[in-house]
Amino acid sequence: MATLILAPLATIGRSVMRLLTGVGRVSIYAGATVSHLFRPPFYPREFLIQLMQIGFLSLPVVGLTALFTGGALALQIYSGGARFNAEAVVPSIVAIGMVRELGPVLGGLMVAGRVAAAIAAEIGTMKVTEQIDALVTLSTNPLKYLTLPRVLAATLSLPLLVAIGDSIGIFGGYLVGTTRLGFNAANYIQNTVDFLEAWDVISGMIKGAVFGFIVAIMGCYHGMNSGKGAAGVGRATTNAVVSSSILILASNYILTEVFFSA
């Protein structure tokens, strides 16, 4: 009888313990990475390569996501706004929605899919083929050589990606607004510019930086802790994408609460 009651509790307890252990490990890992930021040796070449891989090469993905989202947003707000004769708000709502929420969140999620997976797969493969051990025996700290350049590149490039995505998303809304919904081009732009505040844009870019950090840390952490063989690397890749996506959505709520709760 006692086991019947206690067994489910024990299961819950074990899961909670495992979750907390994971959170603790990731935190220690992230802390250790950041602590190397100002301690030589530095690997500028690795950093530039990652800036290219993570930042520049994510532009098409983020741009296309933003373009279609901006367009769909304009259609939705137009038809929704029509219910209370507020079609005129389309430009300002598209701009605010894109810049504050959809730009950073969708951009972050797309980068999570592209970058966290790639990082976890690459580092995981290095781990199972003993390349990480080889790095250590060659007096090179993997945290400095592999993790820090990726984390730094992602944290610095995501805000820029978000800013570019914001512009493209607003442009998507503009295209739909002027071609399908009958807005005057000059008025649309005027409305967008008038209602948008600097803080809207900056808060979105700060979100981007946080999401970039999350994506790179989760990719590296899961790669470094990859299990053996192809299955291990596959699991590490999945875990990296899933955990970074959830963390992006959770931290987005917290950041929005901090930035905008009255």
């Binding site: 003993e130 250590v136 025996t137 007096s139």
Partner: peptide, 15 residues
């Protein structure tokens, strides 16, 4: 570590 060299089983070259 500078005193050591190691040849790994699968060579472990950086690809």
């Amino acid at each position: 570590l500078a005193r050591f060299g190691m040849l790994f089983q699968g060579a472990a070259l950086f690809d």
